[in-house]
Structure formats: structure tokens, C-alpha cells
Computed example of a mutant assay.
Amino acid sequence: MSGMETLVSRDLEAGATSTDAGPFAGESIAELPQVDNAREVAPADAREMSRVFLVRLRSLEEGTREYQYVRNTLIEMNVSLVHFAARRFRSRAAGAGGVDMEDILQVGTIGLIKAIDRYDPAREVEFSTLALPYITGEIKRYFRDTTWAVHVPRRLQELRTELAQSQEALNNLLGRAPTVRELAEHLDLSDEEVIEGLVAANGYTSGSLDTTGDSDEQAPAGRRTRPLAESVGEPDAAMELFEDFHTLAPLLEELSERDRHILRMRFGQELTQAEIGAELGISQMQVSRLLSRTLARLRSGMLTA
């Protein structure tokens, strides 16, 4: 997106100096209103001139130099619509953290280009009426796709916005934070759907485990501030079990098929030694000796590893 303005300027320079020798060779750019600096055209003048340029654009063959000139001039003349729409998202950009307004303007420009390409003068609708929804739609899509720290379904992203608006409205009405039940009734949703939306909203932003729970000013005198990684969570006992399984796997491969079969029956199917003996046609005492020998071998191999 950063190269968009360069491309537009290059196309404008090409279009301003020559026309395409095609089916529209007889139609000269000189017949259009002359625009020295399209970005400096006053909004009222841009609105009137855009009508002329949009009608002309529909009569030109796509890809010709005249088509490029007319289209790029329309983009430059109406970029003020992008700035107008982007102002609504300044606070949201600041809250998202790391979102540059220049990126929002570039995304909005994509929406403007789509509006220019799809505008039909025959409908006699004001161009700005079509362009603004396209511009704001692209900006909203940008926030939806790029500013969430954790990807969640679009349904939950939209629910987060509805919940935030409802919480603000009910807080003003009730003088306190609304309950889940009150939010559910206000939005005509179930309690479970509201809870799901509130949980998903936590994925909008994320914090680093290296940040401290207390700032240096808030920390009691003499107490060292600790990063969240040292105070959040607890040891996972399953990690040791995973390491044991990882070590045990190659040792099991070294056993005979009969020994592995006995282990599966004893610890997988949870059969008794007598049941295993009946299955294999041997005594319970033999099963006990075989299990003891196999388990001792595995234990010794794990301790060595």
C-alpha cells in the first residue's frame, strides 16, 4: 500500500501527457476540465467535476492512457472522502495499539477505488453516497482482520462491538455495570452467547509475560516487581509425564511382541494377571514373572536415559 501514491502519480503523469491511439483516439483529454493539482480541488468543485469525469470514465476502454488519467484524477480529487471517513477511526486506532493512521488512509483509498470502478452514472446517485460505505467498509475489514491479537470468528468480533455499546448504554441507564442477564435481555441473546462474546473480547489485545503486575510507583517499598511470567500459572505435571512417554517409546520398541502384548493387556485393557494367563495359556505365576522382568528392564532403561 505504501507504493500506491507513487503508482497513482506515475499514472497521472502518463495520462496527462498523452492519449491512447485506440477506439477513443478522437476523444482528447483536453476536452475534460483541466486539473493542475487534483488533491487541492475544493470539495464543492470536486463534486461537480467528478460527475463529468465519472461519465467520461464509463465511455473509455479500460487500460488506455486516457482511462488511467481520468480514473487517477478521480482518485486524487476524492481522497478527501477517505480523510473524512478515517477521522471516525482515530480513537479506535489509538486503542488498537500500533495502528498507523497512514495505513488506515491507504486502506480507505482502496475502498474509494472500488467505488469509482463500480459507480454507474445512469443511476443518478451522488458519488459520495456510494463511496463512503465502500471506504468505511474497507477500514472496518482492516481492523477486523489485522488488529485482533487472537483470531476469533467474525460473529464474535461483531458481538464484541455490540456488547461494548450495550454495556455503555446500560451503564448510563442503570448507574452501574450491567450483569450478564441484563446484557442478554438487551441484545435478545442467551446468557451463554453473552459470556462467549465477553470471553472472546479478551482476544482483542494481548500483553507480554515480561510486563510486571505493578508499576515501580505502585510496588511496595523494598519489594521487587516481578514479571507476569513469574506470577501467572503453575507447573504442569503433565509435562513430566510427556517426557516419560517420550523416553519410554524407544524402549518399548526394543521389547518382543509377546512382552508388548502382555503390557497392552495389563495396562491398556486393565486385565488381571489371571485373565492374561488364560488368554495366553500360561499360569498367573508366569505372567507375574514376565511382567516383573519387563517392567524392571523398562525402569532401568529410563533411569539410564
Rank of each mutant, 00 (worst) to 15 (best):
A96L: 07
T64P: 04
F89N: 03
N72E: 02
G95H: 14
S59P: 02
S59C: 01
R56K: 14
E66W: 11
V70M: 07
T64Y: 11
S59I: 04
N72C: 11
R88W: 12
G108E: 00
G98R: 05
R88Q: 15
S91C: 04
K114V: 11
T73P: 04
A85F: 00
R56H: 09
R87G: 01
S59F: 09
G97K: 01
I113Q: 09
E61V: 13
G108H: 01
R65V: 12
R90D: 14
N72F: 05
F84W: 12
I104Q: 02
L60Q: 02
E76N: 07
I110A: 12
A115C: 06
R65L: 10
R88N: 10
Q106W: 03
N72L: 02
V79H: 08
Q106C: 13
G98H: 03
R58L: 00
L57E: 06
V107E: 14
G95D: 14
L74N: 01
L105W: 02
V82I: 09
R56T: 13
L60C: 00
R92E: 09
R65Q: 13
L57I: 00
E61A: 10
R87V: 14
R92K: 10
H83S: 13
Y67N: 08
L81T: 04
V82N: 09
Q68F: 13
V107M: 13
E62S: 13
Y69W: 14
I110L: 10
V99A: 05
M101E: 15
F84N: 10
G108K: 01
G111R: 04
A96M: 10
D100Q: 14
L60W: 08
A94D: 13
K114T: 11
L57M: 06
Q68K: 11
R87N: 06
R92D: 04
V99F: 08
S91K: 00
E62I: 14
G98T: 01
V79P: 05
V79T: 14
A86E: 13
I75E: 13
E102A: 12
T109K: 05
T109E: 15
G111S: 05
Q106Y: 00
E76V: 03
D103V: 15
